[in-house]
Design a protein around this nucleic acid. Sequence first.
RNA 1: GGUCCCGUCGUCUAGGGGUCUAGGACGCCGGCCUCUCAAGCCGGUAACGCCAGUUCAAAUCUGGUCGGGACUGCCA
Length: 475
Amino acid sequence: MTTRLRIAPSPTGNLHVGTARAALFNWLYARHTDGVFIVRIDDTDHERSTQDYEDGILESLRWLGLDWDEGVAVGGPHGTYRQSDRSDRYREVAIQLVASGAAYYENRPPDELESLRQQAQKEGKHPGHYIRKPSDPASEGAIRMSIPQNAPIVFDDLIRGTVSFEPEDVDDFVILRGNGTPTYHLASTVDDVDYEITHVARGEDLLPSTPKHIVLTRAMGMGEPTYAHLPLLFGTDGKKLSKRHDATSLTTYRDRGFMPDAVFNYLALLGWSVDGETTIFGRDAAVEAFELSDVSKNPATFDPSKLEWMNGEYIRAMPTPDFVAAALPFVVAELGRDLTSEEMMLLDEIAPVVQERTKLLPEAGEQVRFLFTDIEEYDAASWEKVMTKEGVPAILDAAGERLLTLEDWTPESIESSLRALLEELEVGVGKGLQPMRVAVTGSSISPPLFESMAVLGQSTTVDRLSNARKLLPQT
RNA sequence: GGUCCCGUCGUCUAGGGGUCUAGGACGCCGGCCUCUCAAGCCGGUAACGCCAGUUCAAAUCUGGUCGGGACUGCCA
């Protein structure tokens, strides 16, 4: 039997990292088992669902490299499908469940509602748990599931093991709202049945909903899928990762200059490992080794610093042309304009030494800025620390003079020329080069100096040495 | 409050009765290298929540306890 898995994002926001991680695990298992991976758009909340969010979520999934199988689910864009297209089906099931006695119309007299409200208060439960909010319109015909009280609801979770709920702890939950729209529980369960989903891997926050889904599935006369409840992702405060934490949507990671392969790798490591030793691995290796039953039970704290380290690993491992292509948008953003074709050549030239020093793509923009724009102002701390030292004017003068007449303008030639000069001046290499760095790049932190000068060009380099010199007192 | 889930270095994890004086990775600290910054290399720091029980032997099994989390909506 081929496995069939799905991810069901709701288009009420951008793709959340928690959802992305769940998508990743579903995708890994589907690919590992040569199964099917479906994307379903859970847009039963009409108020908050938007087309833009839907498009963004699909784009994020593609960015992460999670491809879904088109042609299995249809009706939505790009081989996905939307629950909003299946309203009739959900209503039909709800009616059938009422007919079979598995569900009932909620229609309680006012005094009974009041006593329920008081009971809810006493038990510390949300009042709406028993009664609809008065402000809700058209509430006459809500349909609730009736929970069979004869036996505990038990299931074997691939990750948790055997989980059991007593029926009296499961409330009669609404499956069809008063306005005729399905709730999440109904829509999701009906779809899992209709699309013959074999494995439901989702966040542990849905563990308490699982008995509801099982009751529903059985009432439809079907057997439930295999469940695998993934450990939650926590923010650094130890709470479930939610919108209140910063950077919870996948697009922020793309925008901050993270590589999809790195994010994929990092997310896969949250709750799972290849062998306990391997840290860096690609999609194929993950697909090869992945088992849902190997997923950890413990919640995982999202650690941005490890992700950043990993991103650096991936950036350094890329072919340089790929790095240039990935970094270009961030260079453009840094400059606020496009690069000319001449400037593109300069970027290609400097790229290797910048690539080594880049952890997040925007850093590449900062590093190469000095190549494409005049130095409007020097970094204040660098100037203070380096340029106010004694002997700096003489160093800059001598360097400018020497480089002005240098014939072979290459990093190697510049290096030997300047090293020889500093030896003549009896100035240490470290001490002597820093003023030049500040003069040429505007900061005491920059790509390697000789490469920087070589790419910048002879006349510009000499000009910048002289410009900085003019700002210093005459000796 | 009730129900359910979870507890190995600060963080992600390996481990599932002896090979564990607990391994790997990030971070942090120190050193080397070095034109700055990175990278790289070397070294260090640091954990089985606690208490019982089973056993010749427990991080591993059992019970309890403490702690954390999720859910408790006509949101998903």
